[in-house]
Structure formats: structure tokens, C-alpha cells
């Protein structure tokens, strides 16, 4: 399936992310990863699905279900704390991008490097796009990247296509449910 960058002029290059058509793919990637990490930006707390829920609520569900460490960027940590969830760390989007290029680093200090990064909600499409571009060229030997944002991010290894809010929530729900089921087994 072909997909286009959400901001039309953010054209990447010859290699583009594989489009995730089924959210089960994300659950499977997480389950198979040895040391995954979830990076969440402030958009996760700004966007409202219209039913009282926000993307950050699903981030927490996914993190708990798969026991993935969460790094909150910008001032997103305050929103996690309001929901009684303490992220493993909080740092700028630039810092986490930079550290993920380092094969000797992991957020917990254990089992470096991270081999899978789920990325969601960094506040500006182009900024997230650029960080993923940095990871594509400078972390490719040890890290796979997955965008579970609302939009298509061509520099990841895998990405959702551009989605309506409704479909995005549906996909996040499915990922959380799959991982929760896996945990019960």
C-alpha cells in the first residue's frame, strides 16, 4: 500500500516506511523485540478523540500491557503524572533521538541497545519526521522504528498511513488490546 507524507512537501528519498495496514503488526513487533521503547510527545495530551479519551491514555495502556519503558518528550511528563503514570524518563525529543543512535545506551541502563522504538505525538510533524530521519541514517544498524502517530512518517521502518481520528483511535485500541491479551496468556 502506498502512502504519502502528511505534510506534502516532506519528501524523504528512495526508501520509505512500510505502511501498517493491520495494528496487529505493531503488537507482533513489540512482542518480538528484545528491548523496545516508547517515545511520546505532547500531542498525545493535546488531541481529544471526542469521547473524553486522548492518545496518551492509550500510550499508558500499551506501555503497561507490554511493559515497555516510556520516554516523555517536552513537558508531556506532567500529563502522565496527572494520570498516575510515571514515565521511565523525560527528556527533549532531540535528546531521545540522539541517544537512540547510541548502541551502548538504554533508558533503563540495562540490555542496550534498544532494538525497537515506537514513536507517537511529537508536537510538530516535520520535527518528528526529522528525528526519524536521523534515526534512519544513524541508528539503522541496531534500531527499527515504528510510528503509531496519526500520520504517515516515511522515515520509519513501519508507519500507520494518514488516518482519521476515529481510525487512529481504533488502531491504538487494537494494539493495546492485543498486548493486553498477550499479557494474560
Amino acid at each position: 500500500m502506498a502512502a504519502e507524507p502528511w505534510q506534502k512537501y516532506e519528501i524523504p528519498g528512495p526508501t520509505k516506511a512500510v505502511v501498517i495496514t493491520k495494528p496487529e503488526v505493531v503488537s507482533a513487533l513489540v512482542t518480538r523485540a528484545k528491548n523496545p521503547i516508547l517515545v511520546a510527545g505532547f500531542k498525545t495530551a493535546e488531541i481529544d478523540f471526542g469521547n473524553g479519551k486522548k492518545p496518551i491514555d492509550y500510550v499508558i495502556r500499551i506501555a503497561k500491557a507490554a511493559n515497555i519503558p516510556v520516554v516523555a518528550t517536552a513537558h508531556t511528563v506532567s500529563e502522565f503524572l496527572k494520570r498516575d503514570f510515571k514515565p521511565t524518563a523525560w527528556m527533549s525529543a532531540m535528546d531521545i533521538g540522539n541517544r537512540l543512535t547510541d548502541p551502548t545506551w538504554s533508558v533503563t541502563g540495562k540490555n542496550p541497545p534498544h532494538d525497537l522504538a515506537l514513536i507517537i505525538g511529537i508536537s510538530h510533524y516535520y520535527m518528528s519526521w526529522l528525528i526519524m530521519s536521523g534515526l534512519k541514517s544513524f541508528a539503522y544498524k541496531h534500531l527499527k522504528t515504528v510510528s503509531i502517530d496519526q500520520y504517515y512518517y516515511p522515515h520509519c521502518n513501519w508507519s500507520f498511513p494518514n488516518l482519521s481520528l476515529k481510525d487512529w483511535e481504533k488502531n491504538l485500541t487494537a494494539i493495546a488490546e492485543n498486548l493486553e491479551k498477550g499479557r494474560k496468556k
Binding site: I11, P12, G13, P14, T15, M94, G97, N98, T101, L130, I131, S133, G134, K136, S137, F138, Y140, K141
Partner: peptide
């Protein structure tokens, strides 16, 4: 430096375009 490539390609000379991504 933490590089944030704006494009995977270099288009500055006639040998290009060259893909510089992933090493």
C-alpha cells in the same frame, strides 16, 4: 552533532542524485 537529514539525497553535482541514507 545529532544530524537530522532533510533529505536522503545529495543533488549538488551531476554525478548525483546520490542516496546517502543508512551508511
Amino acid at each position: 552533532p545529532f544530524y537530522l537529514p532533510f533529505c536522503d539525497l545529495c543533488c549538488l553535482c551531476t554525478m548525483g542524485k546520490c542516496d546517502l541514507s543508512k551508511g
